[in-house]
Design a binder for these strands. Sequence first.
DNA 1: CATTAGCATGTTATAAGATAACATAACAGG
DNA 2: CCTGTTATGTTATCTTATAACATGCTAATG
Lengths: 144, 144
Amino acid sequence: MHALIREAEALCLRTGVTFTPPRRRVLELLAASKIPMKAYDLISQAGADGHPFKPPTVYRALEFLCQLGLVHRIEQDATFVACCHSGHTQPVALFVCNSCLKVTEVAYPNVAKVLENAAQAQGFQVESIVVEGRGQCAPCAQAA
Amino acid sequence: MHALIREAEALCLRTGVTFTPPRRRVLELLAASKIPMKAYDLISQAGADGHPFKPPTVYRALEFLCQLGLVHRIEQDATFVACCHSGHTQPVALFVCNSCLKVTEVAYPNVAKVLENAAQAQGFQVESIVVEGRGQCAPCAQAA
DNA sequence: CATTAGCATGTTATAAGATAACATAACAGG
DNA sequence: CCTGTTATGTTATCTTATAACATGCTAATG
């Protein structure tokens, strides 16, 4: 069993929320994938073994997992990826490789502060930030 | 005529690309809107005066305008907003107010470098970055 | 001036992403 | 047992975006 699943179980137990079958199934698929997945890939694959999952079920599971920080949604291309840091609470930037599509997570604790201050300087009170990027991951940059 | 339209004309002239009617129309609508617009709002409004615009036409215009930096796409909610800095090339973060939906643009020249370096430290070669946020703009924060 | 290359738009159809609305089930607490 | 709560099942639909191909416009070339 994937470590992330154990994480999820523990986290749910701690916070008093339930780790139901569809939530588990979606997280399993994401954890097993090396690259971000589209919602409809999850929908078809989740039901590959007989029990078909419909869109709302999967979208609900994704929303749940995102809230817990176990999964990230990549806004630029509407895909979802399992979080490799386990249940972190610090902000992460997601860098997607243009060649292999794998995600590199980059924490940016101080940078977040700077951004918040820059916004604050214009009177804007920041509540959430999304940072995403594109480029070449280490192995693909090597190969090029 | 909106200043942004003059900007666009000048910019297109300089760079040898053409500022065609649909491109102008879409930019006009965005420039006139105080808040980001959805593509399909543009599609219906662009044709309000008799000449209907179809989705591909509007999406093409948006792509064009985004490439020129005259319009930004807000990834989190698939909306589009006219850029208030005229044809800047420096990176901007877009902060959307949760109350009034207006956008505050925040430049972050040095922060971008820091992010790139943080990614680079993990071997990731950054090609592009998107920074978006949510919160309360100055007037709405006052009111609250 | 005809030809043609290039770029841009027009048109039709459909793919892809997401959610509203309501029904059903499972389960804990009184 | 009843009831409130939480989660899933189901149907239908809405929203966002693009593929594929036809047509038109303009400007350079010969």
